[in-house]
Amino acid sequence: MRRAEFLMALMLGVFSVYLMVKSAELPIGWIPDEGPGGGAFPFWLAAGMLGCCIWTLVRWFTRQSPPARSTEPYLNPAARGLVVAVGVSLTLMLGAVHIIGMYFAVPLFLIYYIRFLGRHRWPLTLSVAVLAPVVSFFFFEIALRITLPKGYSEPLFYPLYDLFL
């Protein structure tokens, strides 16, 4: 936990510096007749972020904050695998949305999670995995006219559009 506290403050500090540099691409000073430049607001905020990170690092060094004193592991070892599995499967689902579209990526994710992580029975798994895209389709595409990304599965939906829209 102590090492994580240090690394997090360090990374957030680096991010703050990056933000400051990025903000400085726009004028950060006072422009006559125009007021503060476009970059001033984020620049000073990022400077504030950096200040807070340095403050946190000082507190880390002097062992003032609870995480800086903690000897517990950062992630619970028993749960680490599960958390990582969920994170990875979410990332894979988002990646798959670009290729096979929301209506196929979502059921695959649901099947993986409910059947393999949750160890529920197949009938339950499949009913959720089928119902979710069907309900989404009617709610978003038909009722609200919001098209969800479909990737290469787009042509499969033309007949449905003809039928319902």
Binding site: V86, F109, L110, I114, L117, G118, R119, H120, V128, A132
Partner: peptide, 10 residues
């Protein structure tokens, strides 16, 4: 929870 969680993610 193992059914609710994936639905919330979706």
């Amino acid at each position: 929870f193992t059914i609710l969680a994936p639905i919330i993610f979706v």
